[in-house]
């Protein structure tokens, strides 16, 4: 864990984010708007038998937010809904390997909240 936010991994993910697109036939979709700065992230999932089979996300945000959305989207592939629901702020910090200061915590919570919201909202067929 590092105090320096702008580490290699986050910067790399920010420049070339993974899964940063819409997916075909999502079963779930949700978003979160960071009221502090107006950033917004939207997650799409295709869930089959409680397992996340496909994931994509879109939106705009700072390097932390985008980097975290990218890392998170990789992490949850093939995970169960249960496992995803258990994810918390501290898990995010471990995933991105950065200790995020209080003033920026909303930046990495935005993709997590978007992801959790998507679990709640099933798309009509």
């Amino acid at each position: 864990m590092t105090e320096e936010i702008y580490k290699e991994n986050i910067l790399k993910e920010n420049k070339r984010p993974k899964n940063n697109h819409k997916i075909i036939k999502p079963s779930h979709e949700g978003e979160h708007n960071n009221h502090v700065c107006g950033d917004i992230i939207n997650f799409q999932l295709r869930i089959n038998k409680n397992i996340i089979q496909a994931v994509g996300w879109t939106g705009k945000g700072c390097a932390l937010c985008i980097g975290c959305a990218s890392i998170l989207s990789e992490e949850i592939k093939n995970k169960s809904i249960n496992e995803v629901q258990k994810l918390e702020f501290s898990n995010l910090e471990n995933l991105i390997k950065v200790h995020v200061p209080e003033s920026r915590s909303e930046c990495i919570k935005t993709p997590l909240f978007a992801l959790k919201n998507s679990l709640k909202i099933k798309k009509g067929k």
Partner: peptide, 20 residues
């Protein structure tokens, strides 16, 4: 992003504002 700039500026001891 304005927030990234504000955080990096803080490292340089520069207080500036980012957001709406």
């Amino acid at each position: 992003h304005p927030h990234d700039l504000a955080t990096i500026a803080d490292k340089h001891n520069v207080c500036l504002r980012a957001g709406h």
